[in-house]
Amino acid sequence: MKILVGVKRVVDYNVRIQVNPDGSGVATNGVKMSMNPFDEIAVEEALRLKEAGKAEEVIAVTIGPKASQEQLRTALAMGADRAIHVETDEEIQPLTGARILKALTDKESPKIVMLGKQAIDDDNNQTAQMLAALSNWPQATFASKVEVEGDVANVTREVDAGLETLAVDLPAVISADLRLNEPRYVKLPDIMKAKRKPIETVTLADLAVEQAAAVKVLKTSAPAQREAGIKVESVDELVAALKEKGLI
């Protein structure tokens, strides 16, 4: 079976982002870009399923501008077999992203689509669920454990109440949470090898996908900051302060 895994180019998680003073967005010029960390976990899980003999091929997909190919190369260096770049300079919101992935799943017929649960830029946490809805496939979001047996995946999910397990018939969409695995480090020879792996480039028009009605961003602003308070010197001082506020 094939696994399709989604990869998004985002501002690196170590970057302290700056909001443009004119409200136009977040500064991305000259900022380090990386693969969305949740997507790295998704790629790793797909590779582990392949290494365990549960899948034959891992296909990495990205949607974005030309530069997004860097993140596909990372996925290929990790071990993905080939990659598809849906090239566009337009902003792609989750519903359109899900339509694109639906078009690709119709073409590639994977048994599992593995995505990160959210991208750390827009924090939407929507694409996996939307793809599952459009395909009428099961969804197993926020996965912390994936076990594939034949045509069924047992997925443990991190939910507010604890750990939930769902059994889903394949094909299914799975979204990766933080504790699903620890992604491998890419070694230099693998980076060299990845350069020879194929990347197919397609456009929205090739896939006959139209942009969905979009949410319009009116402005972006810096969040209200909490002021730092005071340092107390002792437990007595702390207790007195909390008592004064009526908190204890």
Binding site: V11, R16, I17, V19, V26, Q93, P94, L95, I120, D121, D122, D123, N124, N125, Q126, M130, A212, A213, A214, V215, K216, V217, L218, K219, T220, S221, A222, P223
Partner: peptide, 29 residues
């Protein structure tokens, strides 16, 4: 489309929501 994590309501169609782990806030329609 879906609007995630509504943190303030400006009107029936305009909302604030956090992005970048709450390090920025967008107003969306």
């Amino acid at each position: 489309p879906q609007i995630s994590d509504i943190m303030r309501v400006e009107s029936a169609t305009v909302f604030d929501r956090p992005i970048y782990a709450g390090n920025a806030v967008t107003t969306v329609e």
